[in-house]
Design a protein around this nucleic acid. Structure first.
Lengths: 132, 132
DNA sequence: GCTTGACCTTCCAGTTACTGGAAGGATTAC
DNA sequence: GTAATCCTTCCAGTAACTGGAAGGTCAAGC
């Protein structure tokens, strides 16, 4: 099948599929006589795998590792789990960070009357001297 | 003062300060005879403002707007508040997204025994056919 | 006066993971 | 035959820096 079919079935845009080939995340696709890439079920599987992993926020580097574990029949499930746990820890760190930002902003927003007047506790906060 | 002092007092690395000047986020600094940038208190103020705003996750584009509101005595606090509210909405969207990822991953991780054996529900999930 | 180290300058390249677009060839529908 | 829709490659841009190279400046110590 052509790249656009593979795109449709994997959920990845054609551009992204070519990009993944470029960076060696997937094997170069077979080519037909006219130079078009030709995908089979197995290829689509791999692409879908990547789509799913990327959707869960794994980096391309992680995807490389996950894909290699996926194709390795001798893998240890512990290795997969470790990558997933690292990702969860990452997510937790980001959520915490965003939560702190949100808290600060919500506090400031609440104090700001938000009308035609120029005085604004939000800007005041941004401009405040750092407390020693 | 030199850029490294300005960096220390604003919390931004010298590289970043030069970068902000490059992209026109701050006015070009005064220069001394030797070509060195020379910063005053007012400059450091602006830089610290930017540091704070960036720390709260505002984009550089937002910072541009916030900085212009900051220096505008005729500003409407409503405009500042609107930017902050947009940022909060953004944070909420990101937290929700991360929360969903976390939920999925935590479920999968829990199911994975994580030992020497190769079978792994995480990989199984990634490789699963999309349900129609 | 000279050297050494710590500054400073500019400029170019790399990071992440794509995405848009141009130029040109192939295929398909009518 | 031709128009629309594919496909190809390649180059550039995105966000917000960061690292590093090449070279000028300055302050301290001998």
């Amino acid at each position: 099948m052509n790249i656009s079919q593979a795109a449709e079935q994997s959920g990845l845009p054609p551009k992204t599929i070519r990009y993944y080939e470029d960076i060696g995340l997937v094997e170069p696709a077979r080519r037909r006589d006219n130079g078009y890439r030709d995908y089979g079920l197995r290829d689509v599987h791999m692409l879908r795998f990547l789509h799913r992993a990327r959707d869960l926020g794994f980096t391309v580097a992680d995807c490389r590792a996950l894909l290699s574990l996926y194709t390795d029949q001798q893998r240890r499930s512990a290795d997969v789990k470790a990558i997933a746990l690292k990702r969860i820890a990452d997510i937790d760190r980001k959520i915490a960070e965003l939560g702190e930002m949100r808290l600060v902003l919500a506090t400031l927003v609440e104090k700001c009357h938000g009308d035609e007047r120029p005085d604004c506790p939000i800007l005041d906060d941004f401009a405040a001297e750092v407390s020693e």
